[in-house]
Amino acid sequence: MIGEMAIGAVVLLGACIGAISAFGLIRLPDIYLRSHAATKSATVGVLLILAAAFLYFLLYLDHVSVKLLLGIVFVFLTAPVAGHLTGRAAYRSGVSLWKGSVRDDLKQEDSSAQGPL
């Protein structure tokens, strides 16, 4: 009973982290910052929920779910790659940084070495 409650609490925590990252997606001012929120917090939320599901099936249904483990590994591997891809696509398609940004090292590199895209 108490174990089920603990698993439910972990699931709720993961859901709240996912909701906070969605809130960040709404609130933050430019795509690069939003991408931070979408990459990190959402990944942690999902990992918590999937791990709780794995534990639940292991403890209460006596079922070792390889599919869930694979899902955990897959989300863990692809989330940073997806964040990197969105950031790079945004930069190369010319989305400008937020006006509060203080520094841009990539700009000089682009104009000097590779020319305008």
């Binding site: 996912g18 969605a22 997606l25 939320g45 989300v75 997806a82 969105t86 950031g87 696509a89 398609s93």
Partner: peptide, 18 residues
């Protein structure tokens, strides 16, 4: 911008999964 929408779609997929 378009990358905003892509990031939102990605997050929607991940949340749907959970």
């Amino acid at each position: 911008t378009v990358p905003d929408r892509i990031a939102a779609l990605d997050t929607i997929g991940v949340l749907l999964l959970s």
